[in-house]
């Protein structure tokens, strides 16, 4: 009983503790502070990298963008407009300032503000990524859970082998190849679904499919493995000792624990999905950031490239942070465990 009389970190977690620790000592506050700090540092690294990108390009980026035949005066004018003649620290400061005021510069090619270009293209990409993520989770979690239960210790050796092999093969196929195959089957041969643009609801089907099939296979695999592991745990035996129904044991006791571990890897997957939109958008002529960044790289429209890299990077960072937070909500131990 001595353990209860001294206030420990454990006691601090309760919100209604009599001798409640001050609010900033609460584990979740510390957790949030650490996460926020980590996010901030990562964002700074990202911003600096995107700023540095244009300076890492060998030669004069403006000359490169406008071509060797452009008049020197025009090149010089653009350089000045971009502030490329200022000393580096000044440029860096201006860049940061611009970010805070929502000024991402001007496109070298179209002369439009980059913010407008990004704002115009972002929703299509976001819709694609979110739908694909939801689709893969909606398929992978039930599938992985079911297979985990079917292949738990002493069960379903053949099922396990068949599933593992299939999922490895499916996961290896890159999303743009799945896209090409889908275009061929459903667009060219069957003619059922549109293969370009995002004008209609049907137009979403193929891009979302090609983006989500691979991640769904990987995620289902992870969920299955975690499920099999968790079903061996002592607390599952406790749940069985309580004589709960099998469904309750699997869904309420095993699944949350399996998902906790699956989430970390799932987060990486989601991050790669954000980037995966680039290729898929180019297969389906999707009017999003992915097709824009590629054409901008080819046109050497660096301010646009810079901004889109920044947006993608931020997307990945936000996803990772969201994963960490949901991890903490699902498994409170992770708040304390992690440094």
């Amino acid at each position: 009983m001595t353990t209860t009389s001294t206030p420990t970190l454990a006691d601090a977690a309760s919100t209604s503790a009599a001798a409640a620790p001050r609010w900033w000592e609460q584990p979740w506050v510390l957790f949030a502070a650490r996460r926020a700090l980590r996010l901030l540092v990562s964002v700074w690294v990202l911003v600096t990298a995107s700023f540095a990108m244009i300076h890492l390009i060998p030669g004069d980026p403006v000359r490169g963008a406008l071509g060797p035949t452009a008049p020197a005066a025009l090149v010089e004018a653009r350089r000045t407009a971009l502030g490329l003649d200022d000393p580096l620290p000044v440029q860096y400061l201006h860049y940061l300032q611009g970010l805070f005021t929502g000024d991402l510069g001007t496109s070298l090619i179209s002369q439009l503000p980059v913010v407008d270009v990004v704002g115009q293209r972002l929703p299509a990409t976001l819709a694609l990524a979110v739908l694909a993520f939801l689709a893969s989770v909606a398929v992978a979690v039930p599938l992985g859970t079911l297979l985990g239960v079917l292949t738990r210790r002493g069960h379903g050796r053949r099922t396990e082998l068949a599933f593992t092999t299939t999922s490895i093969v499916v996961a290896t196929v890159p999303d743009f190849l799945i896209g090409v195959a889908l275009v061929y089957v459903f667009g060219v041969e069957l003619g059922w679904l549109p293969v370009a643009g995002n004008a209609s609801a049907e137009a979403y089907v193929l891009p979302v499919l090609s983006l989500s099939i691979g991640p769904a296979a990987i995620l289902a695999r992870i969920v299955r493995v975690e499920m099999v592991t968790v079903l061996e745990a002592d607390y599952i035996r406790t749940a069985r000792a309580k004589r709960l129904r099998a469904r309750r044991i699997h869904l309420r006791h095993a699944l949350p624990n399996a998902l906790t571990s699956a989430l970390t890897l799932g987060g990486l997957l989601l991050g790669s999905m954000v980037a995966g939109t680039v290729l898929v958008e180019n297969v389906f002529a999707w009017p999003g950031l992915g097709s824009t960044i590629v054409s901008s790289i080819l046109n050497k429209d660096y301010p646009v490239v810079q901004a889109i890299v920044l947006v993608y990077g931020l997307g990945v960072l936000l996803v990772n942070t969201a994963v960490d937070v949901s991890l903490a909500l699902l498994d409170p131990r992770s708040m304390i465990r992690e440094g």
């Binding site: 990562s42 660096y302 890299v309 990077g313 990945v316």
Partner: peptide, 18 residues
């Protein structure tokens, strides 16, 4: 490591040229 490979590849593709 947290950044997807393709994103890094795009970044370096810009730096090293097409």
């Amino acid at each position: 490591v947290a950044f997807p490979g393709l994103l890094l590849a795009l970044f370096f593709a810009v730096v090293f040229g097409v």
